[in-house]
Nucleic acid binder design. Structure first.
Lengths: 210, 210
DNA sequence: ATCCTAGGCGAACGCCCGTTCACGGACGTG
DNA sequence: CACGTCCGTGAACGGGCGTTCGCCTAGGAT
């Protein structure tokens, strides 16, 4: 156990944080396997051996990045869905809005999280997959509740879950902060391409939608 | 120029075909960078040096795989859209059905095509990106035609294009031949999660839909 | 003033990588 | 039977990889 317990961000930039940031950048641009620890060391201005004062291994570094971003995604989504109230449609929309924003704002980390699963060993992979399943479940349950409440009409809830997640996840691939559409516009327009939401869009009263 | 010109499949299994098939398998399961030519040689029962009687380089092998699958995807889609007739909605649905089927049946190759772009050098990458842009354009033009014809109501055509492609591309990630739903069911149900198609589903007359 | 420790340095380790090449056998063609 | 071509063999190449380690110094605690 070398690496210290420095989690995300405290106050300034600890060496560990600078390493994590540079790793996110490199893993996103070049890919995990194509990135060497020597490149990473260069990027933070260290010798390659010194990295090991802050990380346990290259693979643990990838695991930490993926775990952190997934945990934060889940936490933010739980918060937003809770704030959206009880109505399933409002909860689904909160999920989608949060997902779109998160995948846009944290596109490097989320992209890594969706691409580099194969770089993890069994223990890490199982953990990440479990987190991802939990995230997927949050949407599926909201959709199911919508069907049960008669607010949504969905031929197959599992398929709808996969479709919605694909749309949101893909934001990390194409979104650019200086792109044609602002983040607010994307958050407003993109969910309209999700079928189950379309026919139900009008009946949602303004009081339940924040 | 070593490698012979053997394209896809002639009659039986030439060494080159066996190499391509094994490479698809390994690149899909382990990733391009994580796959070594020694693994590949083992998989086809050759020594590593012998591979070079059939390929130019590891990277050219990846490029060939990606190019082939994209070209076939475009050709099949063009054929199906042409067979669907002139009405934009029918053409959009043909695109989606073909895309879903192709990404299900060729999920290994298409997965590689969507994940390993970074493994290509500039020349190969430009070519692949150009093919992908062409594919995307086929859908966008059909959607635009639908809007112009008043058959589709789409707030932002580019966003809708990205969303639809994300849904279809993602099929390669989760589809299993022995899964809960048959390919026919997925082809029928998944497009219904694509918003713009929903309200317009009934008015399509039976004569124009094959 | 002394000690302790965190952490950077830089060399080294063993390993595996993609690629090359001289060699030799198999085999269809004249 | 001789010849040329195809192609598999197996060793070798240089280089980059992740990781380890002994050394040294700076700075806070006592």
């Amino acid at each position: 156990m070398t690496a210290n317990t420095n989690g995300t961000d405290g106050a300034a930039s600890t060496p560990r944080q600078r390493i994590l940031e540079a790793a996110v950048d490199l893993f996103h641009r070049e890919g995990y396997y194509a990135t060497s620890l020597r490149q990473l060391a260069d990027a933070v201005g260290l010798q390659v051996g010194s990295l090991y004062n802050h990380i346990d291994s290259k693979e643990a570094l990838l695991g930490d990045i993926m775990r952190t971003v997934l945990v934060e995604l889940i936490e933010e989504t739980e918060r937003e869905m809770a704030a959206a109230g009880e109505r399933p449609v409002a909860r689904v929309r909160a999920f989608l809005r949060t997902s779109i924003r998160f995948h846009a704002e944290r596109r490097k980390e989320t992209f890594i999280g969706n691409t580099e699963l194969r770089g993890l060993d069994d223990a890490n992979r199982r953990e990440i997959v479990a987190l991802r399943d939990r995230y997927e479940l949050m949407l599926r349950e909201a959709l199911e509740a919508g069907v049960t409440a008669g607010e949504l009409e969905i031929p197959d809830v599992q398929l709808a879950t996969l479709a919605a997640l694909a749309i949101c996840t893909n934001v990390a691939v194409w979104y650019r902060p200086d792109g044609r559409l602002s983040l607010e516009e994307v958050q407003e327009l993109l969910p309209r391409t999700f079928g189950p939401l379309c026919p139900v869009l009008p009946p949602l009263t303004a009081t339940n939608e924040r």
